[in-house]
Simulated scan of single mutants.
Amino acid sequence: MSIMSDAVPEGTADPPPATSRWRRAAEHFRAWRDGDARAMDDLVRLMTPVLWHVVRAYGVDRALAEDVVQTTWLRLVRGQDQITDAAAVSAWLTTTARREAWRAGKAQNRADATEDADLEAMLPVAASAEDEATVADGANRLWAAVQRLDERCRRLIRVVAFEERPDYKSIADDLGMPVGSIGPTRSRCLTKLRVLLGDEVGGAQAAT
């Protein structure tokens, strides 16, 4: 088994749609626990792009993000018995990645002697993973539109988009937002995103 084999964190096509992704992840995890070592490589390839989106939402740099994703997979291997239902493996992975990214970001912030512990201050100015990625045209349009959103919307969408059942309380704590505002804010952000995507499609059609 290779934890990060063939898993390119950025510059790859987006993973399958959510329902298919959760189902396939459960199948791979179940097969791995049944003794199929190759199934873990399949699970890594399927879920690593998702974990990267989640981790990068916490403002860690690429090198630290690699460590966080690696740690998440190692925690899965060591703590597999904690997952009694294989269908929960996707939620377990994304939740673990969020927690590890939050801790790593806090540690990085302290190491840089930054006094402001607010996660908003931890986001880098550098171009995001999506800006650097060369993925399918549809994914490029989507993430280009995400990058045009305000900072709070970008972060919230990246954290929530890949979770089957988001833990709003934990997300609110991580992002410094009231838990009651997560749902309405998510709805507003998605509405803005749809408008941006619609404007982009309209502009492309007018240019042809």
Rank of each mutant, 00 (worst) to 15 (best):
Arg38Glu: 13
Ala63Ser: 08
Asp137Tyr: 11
Trp73Phe: 15
Arg56Gln: 11
Asp150Leu: 02
Arg45Glu: 12
Asp67Phe: 05
Asp36Ala: 10
Glu100His: 14
Gln70Lys: 05
Thr72Asn: 09
Leu156Arg: 03
Glu164Trp: 00
Ala86Trp: 00
Leu51Phe: 02
Asp118Tyr: 07
Ser2Trp: 06
Arg194Lys: 15
Gln80Gly: 15
Asn109Cys: 11
Glu151Arg: 02
Glu115Ile: 10
Arg33Gln: 14
Glu100Asn: 15
Glu130Tyr: 02
Ala107Cys: 08
Leu74Cys: 14
Ile83Lys: 11
Glu27Phe: 00
Asp42Phe: 05
Gly59Tyr: 03
Asp173Lys: 08
Pro178Ser: 07
Lys106Ala: 15
Thr185Asn: 07
Pro184Phe: 06
Pro49Arg: 01
Thr12Glu: 02
Trp52His: 04
Val44Asn: 03
Trp52Asn: 05
Thr71Glu: 12
Ala87Trp: 00
Val77Trp: 13
Ala206Asp: 00
Arg141Ile: 02
Asp112Arg: 13
Thr95Phe: 15
Lys169Ala: 07
Arg188Gln: 11
Gly202Phe: 09
Arg158Phe: 00
Glu10Ala: 04
Ala113Pro: 12
Trp102Arg: 13
Gly183Gln: 11
Asp14Ser: 14
Pro16Val: 09
Phe162Lys: 07
Ala204Lys: 14
Ala7Glu: 07
Leu156His: 02
Ser170Glu: 09
Asn140Ala: 08
Glu115Gly: 15
Gly202Asn: 10
Thr19Val: 07
Arg194Ser: 08
Ala87Ser: 06
His28Cys: 12
Leu156Glu: 09
Ala104Thr: 01
Leu64Phe: 02
Leu149Phe: 06
Ala117Ile: 00
Val201Trp: 10
Leu76Asn: 07
Arg165Lys: 07
Arg30Gln: 09
Gly176Leu: 01
Asp6Asn: 06
Ala129Pro: 02
